[in-house]
């Protein structure tokens, strides 16, 4: 009885298979050698070398692309459902910039030199701080208050980051900050994965707990409340879940744009436009897209490896413009 072009479980299975395939490719290719070189290494008894390349270099990066992509996709879908606005993305709650600010402070103060995990830890602290401010507002204010507060937090954090760049003692420090902000999963360790993954899982659980309420919100807040939806609880789950997950992801990988915006757009027709079904589908879709982008940056012969966030924005922004252009009649009804 649904208009979805393919059954929901089949869609999830196909997306999961796509993720598995991209994950395998991501482990097998890249600088240092493809499957042929890896099997050659193992054949000549150099299994340690093969493990170092696959297990210690490529595995963390693959896991981060998978989990961060999934988090961005699901958070985008949940925020679009909560705000009932197809243009919402994880950036609207200000968490991307607040996590970035925490990381920039770690870079600027040199804390990240003294203790490598200081950077993601401070990024997470920044994200949690902005999440708490928003949650305090979510208890009282409406949706518009939330969006405006997100914009204000975002602007303040961006201004503070500019201040750090402005005051940075030498050009190298400024360049380091700029490069970090572009977003990447290169040169991360399993420590990064272990730090961010539990928070991303917690965020995903919170978003999934709000899934059914997002369906009821399709009929407006008044009707949803009359159906027994607690609006404050739903807001807290979605804002909190998105902030914690995306904040943790940003803290380890930098700002990666457009995944949270574009993926729900692409998948919405395939789940029959049902907000709750869009969550799991967008998580798998986001994971697949970010892994594909990370494979792409390794294959492009650009000399210097492109930053992942640069590629997602370069591909995502024009694509998004095209989506808006195509859907403009629908958006304006």
């Amino acid at each position: 009885m649904t208009r979805a072009p393919i059954p929901y479980l089949l869609l999830l299975t196909l997306l999961a298979l796509l993720c598995a395939a991209l994950g395998a490719v991501s482990l097998l290719i890249g600088p240092g050698g493809g499957p042929a070189e890896i099997s050659a290494m193992i054949a000549r008894g150099d299994a340690d070398m093969a493990w170092m390349m696959v297990g210690e270099v490529r595995l963390p990066r693959t896991l981060l692309a998978l989990t961060v992509g999934a988090t961005l996709g699901m958070a985008g879908a949940a925020l679009q459902g909560l705000l009932r606005n197809p243009l919402a993305d994880p950036g609207v709650v200000g968490v991307t910039t607040s996590a970035s600010l925490g990381a920039v402070v770690a870079l600027y103060t040199g804390a990240s030199m003294a203790f490598p995990l200081a950077l993601p830890v401070m990024g997470i602290a920044g994200a949690l701080f902005s999440a708490l401010v928003l949650l305090a507002l979510a208890r009282r204010g409406g949706m518009l208050t939330l969006v405006l507060a997100g914009v204000a937090i975002s602007s303040l954090c961006a201004a503070l980051m500019s201040l750090a760049l402005n005051l940075s003692p030498n050009p190298y420090a400024a360049a380091e900050i700029m490069f970090w902000l572009m977003g990447s999963v290169t040169d991360r360790s399993m420590d990064h994965v272990a730090l961010a993954a539990p928070l991303m899982a917690l965020g995903a659980i919170m978003l999934l707990l709000a899934a059914r309420a997002l369906n009821a919100l399709s009929l407006g807040e008044e009707t949803a409340a009359s159906l027994g939806v607690s609006l404050p609880r739903t807001r807290a789950l979605v804002i909190g879940g998105a902030s914690i997950g995306v904040g943790a992801g940003t803290a380890v990988c930098g700002g990666i744009g457009f995944i949270g915006l574009v993926v729900p757009h692409l998948l919405r027709p395939l789940v029959g436009h049902t907000p709750s079904r869009l969550l799991a589908a967008s998580a798998l879709g986001g994971a697949a897209l970010l892994m594909a982008a990370d494979i792409l940056v390794r294959l492009l012969p650009t000399g210097i490896e492109l930053k992942l966030g640069v590629v997602t924005s370069l591909v995502g922004a024009p694509f998004f413009l095209w989506l808006i252009f195509r859907a403009r009649t629908e958006l304006e009804t």
Binding site: M1, T2, R3, R84, R212, N215, A216, L217, S218, L219, G220, L227, G228, V229, R268, P269, G272, H273, T274, P275, E330
Partner: peptide, 15 residues
């Protein structure tokens, strides 16, 4: 909101 079908909308009454 969204392009929900009439059936999906009526089903929300079962929330």
């Amino acid at each position: 909101e969204w392009r929900l079908t009439a059936h999906d909308v009526v089903m929300l009454g079962r929330y």
